[in-house]
């Protein structure tokens, strides 16, 4: 059984590298396990049966099974999202600098109205943050139109990146507090890295989730109920 598990683990890595989706990988592995178990019952070791090239076998099997390859393109999605976020950040900064005095002049809040500091901070930092997120999402949607399920990826990003931002903000603030709000380059770089890591993680998760269950209906397994035949 160990040999079968080892072979299936290696085949699974090959299928992942080849871009086979989760549902198809599961179906292929289930079928292959049953066949290898039948061979093992005849005393044939799975690793010996497949020889040394399990990865090549796995790719051939995926091709013959007619599974659809999924282009995840994590690297492209991440780079594009980062570029969009940077552009969005620049745009947000420019808007903030140029429009803030205008807003202050236009909206003259009476002194009797007390705006909670949390609301002020949320608006002041939240609006630019939304522009950054919008930049990342738009960049991915527009630049990567050729990728499958990119629209769904964009939707997931618009959901997950703000959540990641909300989660990482107190962590980053806590880190800043622990360093007595130091502005030393290593500290600032660490804070930037924390935020970027959270946003990158959210982007990758969005891509991964958007490709889940891509092909449930027509996996390699036979949809018909198995028949029991005498030996």
């Amino acid at each position: 059984m160990d040999s079968i598990d080892d072979v299936l683990a290696e085949a699974d890595r090959a299928w992942r590298a080849y871009g086979v989706g989760t549902a198809d990988r599961t179906a292929l592995a289930t079928d292959l396990r049953l066949d290898l178990q039948a061979a093992a019952a005849d005393g044939v070791d799975a690793a010996r049966l497949l020889g040394g090239d399990v990865a090549g076998f796995a790719r051939r099997l995926a091709v013959e099974a007619g599974v659809r390859r999924v282009r995840r393109d994590y690297g492209r999605v991440l780079r594009t999202a980062l570029a969009g976020a940077v552009l969005g950040g620049v745009l947000a900064y420019a808007v903030l600098i140029t429009m803030y005095p205008v807003f202050v002049r236009l909206i003259d809040i009476p002194r009797s109205v007390q705006v909670p500091i949390q609301v002020a901070v949320a608006v002041y930092y939240g609006v630019p943050a939304l522009v950054v997120v919008a930049g990342a999402v738009l960049a991915v949607r527009l630049r990567l139109r050729d990728l499958p399920r990119i629209r769904r990826t964009g939707w997931m990003m618009s959901l997950l990146i703000p959540i990641a931002g909300i989660l990482v903000t107190p962590l980053t603030m806590a880190f800043a507090w622990s360093t007595d709000y130091s502005t030393a380059p290593p500290v600032v770089l660490t804070e930037v890295a924390m935020v970027l890591a959270a946003l990158a993680g959210a982007t990758l998760l969005a891509r991964r989730w958007s490709l889940r269950d891509r092909r449930k209906a027509s996996g390699p397994s036979s949809p018909t109920a198995p028949e029991i035949a005498p030996a």
């Binding site: 292959l32 497949l50 091709v63 013959e64 390699p220 036979s222 198995p226 035949a229």
Partner: peptide, 22 residues
């Protein structure tokens, strides 16, 4: 490594079907 992928293709094409045998 030659037989099993071919068998899988023939199943995909509906030429063979799998069944459980006691």
């Amino acid at each position: 490594g030659t037989i099993y992928p071919l068998l899988t293709r023939m199943r995909r094409l509906g030429l063979v079907a799998d069944e459980q045998q006691v």
